[in-house]
């Protein structure tokens, strides 16, 4: 799985951080998404898919082979 984020679309809802803090973080200034790891281990895939699905700004893309 390969994860990417679009900070320009992000509206700082924080839902990705709540769902998978191992993969997503937020900027201290304006809460915009920061990607901790773009190739998360398989045990986090389900949570990453959830995060991408609930992101209100559709700022998270997940590529799966």
């Amino acid at each position: 799985m390969r994860v990417s984020v679009d900070p320009d679309r992000c509206c700082s809802s924080g839902q990705c951080v709540a769902a998978v803090p191992e993969v997503f973080d937020q900027s201290e200034d304006d809460g915009v998404v920061l990607l901790i790891q773009s190739r998360p281990p398989a045990e986090l895939w389900f949570a990453v898919r959830t995060a991408a699905g609930i992101c209100p700004a559709r700022a998270i893309s997940v590529q799966e082979p």
Partner: peptide, 9 residues
């Protein structure tokens, strides 16, 4: 974005 920093997780 002037306010989002106050509501980060």
């Amino acid at each position: 974005r002037m306010l989002t920093g106050d509501f980060i997780i």
